[in-house]
Design a binder for these strands. Sequence first.
RNA 1: GCGCCCGUAGCUCAGCUGGAUAGAGCGCUGCCCUCCGGAGGCAGAGGUCAGGGGUUCGAAUCCCUUCGGGCGCGCCA
Length: 561
Amino acid sequence: MKDNLLALLESAVARLQADGTLPGDLTPKIQVTTTKDASHGDFACNLAMMLAKPAGQPPRAVAELLIAALPDDPTVNKVEIAGPGFMNFYMAQAAQSEIVRTILDLGDTFGRSQSGAGEKVQVEFVSANPTGPLHVGHGRGAAVGDCLCRLLEATGWQVTREFYYNDAGAQIDNLALSVQARCLGHGPDHESWPADGYRGDYIKDVADDYMAGKKVDAADHHVIGAADPDDLDAIRHFAVAYLRREQDLDLRAFGVVFDVYFLESGLYQADKVDEAVQRLVEQDHAYEADGALWLRTTEFGDDKDRVMRKKSGGYTYFVPDVAYHLDKWQRGFKRVINEQGADHHSTITRVRAGLQGLDMGIPQGWPEYVLHQMVTVMRGGEEVKISKRAGSYVTLQDLIEEVGRDATRYFLAARRTDSQLTFDIDLARSRTNDNPVFYIQYAHARVCSVMRQLEEKNLDHDPAQGNLHLDRLDSEHESRLIKRLAQYPELVEAAARNLEPHNLAHYLRELANDFHSYYNAEQFIVEDDELRAARVNLILATRQVLRNGLDLLGVSAPESM
RNA sequence: GCGCCCGUAGCUCAGCUGGAUAGAGCGCUGCCCUCCGGAGGCAGAGGUCAGGGGUUCGAAUCCCUUCGGGCGCGCCA
């Protein structure tokens, strides 16, 4: 509907330009918005106000000219000029009927588009190091990242989900030492405990399995415990595999699956890090000072230069990151999105600077970043900080066990990523309309329940017959609901384009609200066969959109609750 | 001190990239089941959009500034 109006307005502008009423060199960005208030019609356009100045006429006069130049269209009932110069469009009943018909027709594909044109995009998210269980912050990353992927897929992109982790650095050495200490029966308070050792109880679980010679099957690791407390190398391999497996189990329970696991050690094995550094030196973006090798990141907007190779010889953390992103580029991803916690935002400048310094034609703003702010968890009005297992933070597993996958995913994805998130466990667990997840799922289950009622009453529903009588859907609740359904495709499009999954969550709440209102106001199973068929088609269309939207969030759509 | 993010109803948050009288949910007050699931619906009260400037037909939205809060500012990762 909206697209059609845009086309009509474009041709009106063209017509006025042709006869000289409007300057010919204008290419106005025409905006059509759905109205908040039914007294403003179905759609509103502010074009006349934008053209007032170049046209040299008051907005309302321009609006009159535009309306006169508008081609006839059967879906438009009337156009009014209102307020300072808005053009309000009232749509014909036929346009509304068409929406219901289209939704039922397209089913699962309603709301999907091809705007990504099958282009490749890689989304890297979670990327936790295998040194412990995933915590709430990773959970937010997983929920947001996966929802982004689903949105991109729904809009025609070919998505690769990637998980990057460090399996060889100082943190991993520390992990191995911690497990070793546990193998020897030492706890965190023992005098020989490593200085910055991982103190959580899970380290003991790793040690026990290692000593028992158990087998670990992770997505990209298969290891048997060597049971030798002196073999630090074997301990390291086992611990990494063990914790990767734990993370995979958490992610699977969360409904998130990755296509690629990328190991930092692979970069070193293939000399990718040295090659990248070499290239930066050759391109004259690096220099030696104080016994270290520096990258001139100030050339690319950083406030000071950064060390690449330390005096002691090793690379600083962002150097392999540059090599890693070069590898992504070389794999042919013209578009890469990194979803990360905002606490790492300072790396963005460095990684991009490194990539620019390579001078290999990588665009300045590449890769894109989506950063999420911190999560705090509340229970009983108090902040929850400790998990027994992990020691120092609330784990994703804790949340999934306590409130379930659906609520966890919804709550973690339902907020703008750039504001801090308070996860209220009591709210997420509640089964009333305080809780948007259950409210939305309940709307879906309610439609299913009506369908069951129809069957019990031996009233066969024929969608084709319903489609013939959609013009009977003329109540206020019905047109409101239909208008909401019509917004879904552009909402998905915008959420994907702006990388803002939370919009989807809010939309679904509003859709459910419209449905529940309708449910209370009108009876669907009525005597009148034609009216009944039409109304059932409308609630089936509603169910379809609820289902499609929940699927993009990775939340289930239960038939009964 | 510098950089990034945030500040909207008592609370938790939206606000479609500058539009009409700033919206939801919770909480509060009062209503609605001879009816498809009351796990629901309707109505009311509640606002200096943190404060102050600016940009223009028009600002919660863009710019400047002040004040609050979070996160970063290492030859740690």
